[in-house]
């Protein structure tokens, strides 16, 4: 089953400002498992891409917040998740865009992020 995860950055990822609970290692783990991954943030797309490159993670997408719905149409997956820390900019935006939504702490508890044994 193909799963796509969109990560907000600030307040969600450990490299955000403020830092969030999701580590870059967790991102690598889900990518290794075959998840489609990328970021959807108010940070400019060019700086999102730089951030991922800095951590040597090759993401499938890096888009501005209001373009999340386009991610769904651009990628074929069985399930679409957005993880973020804001009620309106993340949760409501995700639900409007046809994504399921997880708060960062909820997401961190998902088995997806556990390394394969």
């Amino acid at each position: 089953m193909a799963i796509l995860i969109s990560f907000d950055i600030d307040g969600t990822l450990e490299v955000g400002d403020p830092p969030g609970p999701l580590t870059m290692e967790m991102v690598r783990i889900v990518q290794d498992k075959g998840f489609l991954i990328g970021s959807c943030s108010d940070r400019p797309p060019s700086s999102q891409r730089s951030l991922w490159e800095e951590h040597q993670i090759n993401v499938d997408f890096a888009v501005a917040k209001h373009l999340l719905a386009g991610v769904k149409s651009d990628f074929n997956a069985d399930a679409y998740y957005h993880i973020g820390d804001r009620e309106d900019l993340d949760r409501q935006n995700a639900l409007r865009s046809g994504f399921e939504f997880l708060w960062p702490d909820e997401a961190a508890a998902q088995p997806w992020f556990l390394p394969e044994k």
């Binding site: 108010d42 797309p45 060019s46 917040k65």
Partner: peptide, 25 residues
Amino acid sequence: QHRPEQLTPEDYLSSRWIAKPANLF
């Protein structure tokens, strides 16, 4: 000091609107 990232015209022009014609940036 914290995020030494240039803002490209593409970044600026593709940003979400707050109250069009004013966007996030």
